[in-house]
Amino acid sequence: MLEAAFVDIDWQSHERSVNTFKDGPHIFLVQFLHGWLPVGKLVSRYNPVKYPSACPSCNEPTEDSKHVLTCPNPERHKWQAALKTSLRHRCESVDTDPALLDLLLWGLNHWLQGIPIPAHSVPEWITHLLHSQTMIGWDNFLLGRWSKHWTTLQFQYFQRNHIEVKNKNHGLSWSSNIIRLMWDHCYKEWKTRNKARHGKDAEDKAQRQLEKALRTIRDLYDLKPKCSLQAQRHYFYPTVEDHFCTDTDASSLENWLETYEPMIMQNIRHRQTNSDRRLRLIDEVFQP
């Protein structure tokens, strides 16, 4: 972000919003605001075998933070309409300048659709706001990093139209009220995403855990040739099918993974290190 954009952010509104957000756990808000939600792209770095990078709801191969909010899956897409409806109702209830409301909704919609906002689509007197927020980023708008011009123009609207200034319709109260509403909807969408990833109920979650264990074990068996001969004999069954015939439930499979997966990965790394040094393990030299 450019320094000029950083300076133009209304950090007081952002701080007020953070301090008064009560609609979700604090850990979600911290991760959300800093781009550290455990999405597929992030967690797959730690263990791509166990944690796939793909979106759980569509065919997108890499799920990042933006995709969580823009996933085209019909069930996942519903939150956008709910967000826009709630924003319109909330803004109208606190006497928001109609031009600001239109820009707010247009800006979010264009960002969610990945389409730039044409400058001629807004009144001339708020083009500087459009330029400022575009420089800051409309993704940052959703993160509560608003241009300072929002609250200034809202107050000027009151002055022009002789509207009574109340506690919630101007300044930090007005901006933080709207920002918290957006975060609330983002948190609800995050919960919807998690249900798609981990299951909606106990039965669904158990099935997802079983599928995850089966997938992880299959991937480990694909790595079997990279292990030493001793590790292949000690850690693995002759075939993955033999393994699944012996361990038939999620609990047994997960226990096997907890015990042997770290050993298998360590053995592969150790063998690779020896290979780089052109060393051979003794069980590979003297095969039984």
Rank of each mutant, 00 (worst) to 15 (best):
Q209F: 11
A81L: 15
W190E: 01
K224W: 07
V240F: 06
N59A: 11
L153M: 06
N140Q: 11
E60G: 05
T151F: 02
E124L: 13
D102K: 14
F158K: 06
D97F: 09
R90T: 08
Q207F: 11
H67W: 04
L69R: 02
C245T: 15
R88E: 05
R160F: 14
G199W: 03
W146K: 03
S93G: 05
L105S: 01
D10F: 05
L181K: 03
K22E: 12
N47T: 09
M135H: 14
P118D: 08
A206N: 04
W256T: 02
D102T: 11
E164L: 09
F32N: 00
E60Q: 09
I115N: 10
F32I: 06
L104N: 01
Q209L: 14
V285C: 08
F141T: 00
P116S: 05
Q133D: 04
L104H: 04
I268Q: 01
Q31D: 14
T134H: 08
H110M: 11
M182I: 11
I264C: 02
Q154C: 03
S228Y: 07
H14P: 02
W190T: 02
I9G: 00
W111C: 01
L101N: 01
L281V: 15
P48K: 10
K188V: 07
E60R: 09
I136A: 01
K84W: 14
W79A: 02
S17M: 05
T134V: 09
K226G: 07
R277L: 10
H89Q: 14
T248N: 15
H89R: 12
P61S: 05
D242E: 07
D201G: 04
V7C: 12
A213H: 02
A4T: 12
I115L: 13
F286K: 11
L2R: 12
H77A: 15
T259P: 06
G35V: 08
L108Y: 06
P288Q: 08
F158A: 07
L105Q: 04
W183N: 01
I115S: 10
A5H: 02
R160K: 12
I217D: 00
I136N: 00
P288G: 03
